[in-house]
Design a binder for these strands. Structure first.
Lengths: 202, 202
DNA sequence: CCTACCGATCGGTAGG
DNA sequence: CCTACCGATCGGTAGG
């Protein structure tokens, strides 16, 4: 289907150069289509951008959420989810790093449907992490009892964000391993040893 | 000086819409100049972008580093530095959030002098944080003895990054206060109480 | 610093 | 899905 291949390419290019700099003409060239063959499916560049963001959300869900969705809610799933997230970055699912991260910074000051879709997707994802963190704390699974679930989710996101950023800006492949240690520390299980002094690997 | 006013405007606009989307024509309109009056100072758009990045670096140094540079190296300066960094975001020194953060994500896949300048400035900043973290640990000031100075710097950066991001994307003014708590926890002083259970404010 | 201009490309449309 | 085209704007230059 042409529409799907246009969106795949738009999301890939969007992760590298940005959804605004991306032009319909260059997208058409790369796909061997005419400009009208590209834009005809969407009506406007903004609708194309919105559709590309929706593809990016679906891809994130498939690569990060679906593999862990059926595991035990609470600390188990929280730790698996963090690892799936880092693995998604490590595998370079998008050529320019996390597409929705790049898009969120690009559109954060650009009001419209694209921005709204990105902001809402990220809100849902953070809420989901927060929910598992709350479950983990209610069960007494987490060593960190001085942080709220919202703080845990926010800090986890900061770590993953930093890993994605350093990997792209400095071509530092070990950024993700560095962040694995930070995640292991944040999500350390409760227990007499406090989870410290261990290797941090599963 | 015209050149300086062009660069101030370019950095401000760059923080909002990006340095690549920004056009010489719109910059000229906003300043009441002709296009050649803008570009004549720089020769090319890339040189203008580079000069704007240099202005952004100087501004960051002035707003974040200079106020704390003369304080005691080690944990004291590390904590002041983190607070100066968050305050710089809170005061909206640039209208679109941290200009060098936005620029780093925009140029991370765009080779050239602009990207090199951004990557090098961030490397220097992280090294500087790392150095104070090492001093703090060598003096036994830090509760966190299971993290390397590099990890402390990297995690601190992740926190500040997340605060900037949430503030922009969700217009969440309390994102910075949330991150203040994370920073207080990361940079907790050594001592019998481990620095936990306190309010986290200075 | 200006006006006037260059060729290229932009998003989008008409008509098929 | 195509060709052919629209007005607007792009980065940059010539000449002053």
């Amino acid at each position: 289907m042409t529409r799907a291949s246009v969106l795949d390419r738009a999301a890939a290019l969007g992760s590298v150069e940005g959804l605004e700099v991306l032009s319909i003409g260059r997208l058409a060239d790369q796909l061997g289509l005419s400009k009208s063959g590209v834009i005809g499916h969407f009506g406007s560049k903004e609708q194309l951008q919105l559709a590309a963001v929706e593809v990016g959300i679906a891809r994130f869900r498939k690569e990060v959420w679906e593999p862990v969705a059926r595991s035990e809610p609470g600390l188990t799933r929280l730790r698996l989810l963090a690892e799936a997230w880092l693995s998604y970055l490590e595998r370079d699912v998008f050529p320019g790093g996390c597409f929705l991260t790049a898009a969120s910074l690009e559109f954060d000051d650009r009001p419209g449907v694209v921005r709204d879709a990105i902001a809402s997707a990220w809100r849902q994802w953070l809420d989901l992490i927060e929910h598992d963190a709350a479950t983990a704390q209610a069960r007494g699974e987490l060593a960190a009892t001085d942080l709220t679930p919202s703080q845990i989710a926010f800090q986890l996101h900061g770590y993953v964000f930093a890993a994605n950023w350093a990997r792209r800006l400095w071509r530092a492949p070990d950024a993700i391993d560095e962040i694995r240690k930070a995640v292991a520390r944040l999500l350390a299980p409760a227990g007499p040893s406090q989870g410290l002094g261990e290797s941090g690997d599963e």
